[in-house]
Amino acid sequence: MPDAGYLIAAVAIAVIVTWTLRAVPFVVLSPLRSSPPLIAYLNTAMPMGVMVILATYTLRAFSPYVPGKAWPTVLALAVTVALHLWRRNVLLSILAGTAVHVALASTVFAPP
């Protein structure tokens, strides 16, 4: 378990970086009120790519050779994607996918 000092430092860094990204552009970008081409390009391409990388990152421990852990992940992911393509409701997709994962991982595929 991480110690309190490390946790406080981690939170402080996250706060400083996030607040800087939210506040500084008002000084730097606002006078322009129209973004330069490179910024505009990154704005369209970055968000999706970042989400794809983050989703992959959360699945880094996935291994098909550990079926007890792999099956709940595969099935819950299928439910999340299918439900989201169908209903387009962020909250519903997340809650349903997580419910399926918790149900499978805690019962049928529970560690002995």
């Binding site: 369209t44 989703a55 709940p72 992940t73 997340i94 997580t98 991982a105 529970a110």
Partner: peptide, 30 residues
């Protein structure tokens, strides 16, 4: 004994990626 709640994070980013993909239709970047 209730485990597997951390899947919410995977679901969150999967859903956000799908939404971003739907807005931009940019398969190559994905």
């Amino acid at each position: 004994s209730v485990t597997g709640l951390d899947f919410a994070v995977t679901a969150l980013f999967t859903v956000l990626a799908i939404d971003a993909l739907r807005a931009r239709r940019d398969i190559r970047t994905a």
